[in-house]
Design a protein around this nucleic acid. Structure first.
Lengths: 155, 155
DNA sequence: ATACGAATTCAAGTCAACTTGAGGTCAAGC
DNA sequence: GCTTGACCTCAAGTTGACTTGAATTCGTAT
């Protein structure tokens, strides 16, 4: 009864069966056994899917998320690494906040075109500066957020 | 007058030539004319690339960004759209914060039973709630714009 | 016993945003 | 006038995260 087959997992998590199979295929989740052909999942998988969803929303790739779990399936990373990741997130949060504020300012700016708005120019300059000359392929820290939008906006 | 060929644009903007050609192909930027085979760009393009970079950082797709320029090629961003994006950023910030907290919790929690730890569950639950139902898979409507090679963007 | 529906596999397709590579062109410098 | 090197085109490949479809196999309810 505590064992769910894929349809139930999909129903409760909102993650479609195809995706669940895919996740299992890449080792992100796993089923306990088969009942006939059917995968039987432990209820725990729902929690794990929440965690995965969270990670995705935060801009991590599935590979990165997978790296946050040990082979036993439980979150298992050296504490220092976890904290480092958290620090990294903190930096991203700051960046996003700046961007958010800038967008709002531009949205409310009375200048007729954005190019004439001084703060828009300033914003352009700062964003240009902040990610200029990045031929050092600087990695997850800067790309995680930009990489993929977690939810398609209505625009 | 400064007319740049693609190498110079790449050098000043940090955007590789292949990408610049791609952007031109999809109508996101444009060159003024050819000198022999070579594209000649107006210096303006650098500003535009900053704008594009900004848009990307804010999570807009290239198609969306292209839609932000009027027929004259000048930025014309609907303010409501900017606010909407700022709202989305705000949500993303919340997600990041929760992930950060989750990571810190995992780092500091002495038990190896994170998935059963009440406060961890609570964290997860709150994140799950925040971005609950996502069956907004309206894909056909949004893709109607740019198909294959028929790209003739709004420039 | 049979039908039904829910699940299965596996290959292939999709989408965005590029990159890569092969082979060709051209203007400028020596 | 020949070489060089920056540029060109066009097709195809890449990556990540899935989805789709056809053919098939179960378990359960009638």
């Amino acid at each position: 009864m505590k064992f769910l087959d894929i349809g139930k997992v999909a129903e409760h998590s909102g993650v479609p069966p195809s995706t669940l199979r895919y996740y299992e295929e890449i080792g992100l989740i796993r089923s306990l056994w088969r009942h006939g052909l059917r995968r039987q999942f432990d209820g725990d998988v729902l929690l794990k899917l929440s965690l995965i969803s969270l990670g995705k929303a935060a801009g991590f790739s599935l590979t990165e998320i997978a790296g946050m779990f040990g082979r036993d399936g439980r979150p298992d990373i050296p504490r220092a690494q976890l904290h480092a990741r958290a620090d990294e997130l903190e930096r991203q949060i700051l960046d996003l906040r700046m961007l958010r504020d800038a967008l709002r300012h531009v949205a409310d700016c009375p200048a007729s075109t954005h190019l004439e708005c001084p703060s828009f120019r300033k914003l352009l300059k700062s964003t240009t500066r902040s990610r200029a000359v990045d031929h050092s392929r600087s990695h997850a820290a800067t790309t995680a957020v930009t990489r993929k939008r977690s939810v398609r906006g209505p625009l």
